[in-house]
Amino acid sequence: MQQLIYYCEEKQGAQRDYPFGPEPLVMKVAGKMFALISSDSISLKCNPEIAQNLREQHTVVKPGYHLNKMHWNTVTVDGTLSELELQAMIDHSYELVVASLTKLARAELTQA
């Protein structure tokens, strides 16, 4: 999991937060969540159509645990999916959140 945390932290403007206590670790950009990381899973925002396809293709991908099940997936990290596949899911989540930011917030992000 540590490698996934490092990957999330490398994203422009990414910040750690613990709004729910010691776990899960919440990764945010401009104050908005893009990843929730626990000891054995990661929850990521996802386009609803892609989310459904991923759930159908991989048994380790489930609707978001305690999240909007249409827009979030929770992925059990047990070696079933490669690190590259997980990184692609992180990238998608981050990009969706950044795209939802105001024009000003996106501009501030690129200047940081």
Rank of each mutant, 00 (worst) to 15 (best):
V97S: 04
A30G: 04
L104P: 00
T59R: 06
S38N: 14
P22I: 11
I90A: 07
V77R: 01
S100E: 06
I50M: 12
P22D: 15
G31P: 03
L44F: 09
L101Q: 06
L36N: 08
K32Q: 07
T76M: 11
Q52C: 02
K28T: 14
G31Q: 07
E23P: 00
L67N: 05
H71L: 03
Y94R: 08
V75I: 15
C46T: 12
N73T: 11
P19L: 09
A88R: 13
Q57D: 13
N68G: 06
G21Q: 08
L96M: 15
H58P: 00
T74K: 01
L81M: 15
F20A: 07
R55M: 15
D78P: 01
S43L: 05
D91V: 12
M27H: 06
M70Y: 02
A88H: 05
A51W: 00
E95I: 09
V26N: 11
S39Y: 03
I42L: 05
M70K: 14
L101N: 02
A107D: 14
F34G: 06
L36G: 07
R55S: 06
A99H: 09
I37R: 03
E23L: 11
H58N: 15
G21C: 09
L81D: 04
S93H: 10
G21Y: 07
A30S: 13
A105D: 14
H66Q: 06
S41H: 13
M70D: 11
L67R: 01
N73M: 09
C46F: 02
L36Q: 11
V97E: 05
Q87K: 15
M70P: 00
F34I: 08
V26T: 14
D91L: 10
L86E: 11
I37S: 04
A51F: 02
L54R: 00
K45S: 11
T59L: 10
E56K: 11
N68T: 06
A51V: 10
D91F: 06
V61S: 03
E85H: 07
S43D: 10
A107T: 14
V61R: 03
S38A: 14
M89F: 12
R106L: 12
I37C: 13
L96P: 07
I42V: 15
P19D: 13
E85Q: 15
M33G: 08
G64F: 08
G64A: 08
V97Q: 02
V26S: 06
S38E: 15
V26R: 09
W72L: 02
S100G: 13
V75M: 05
E23F: 04
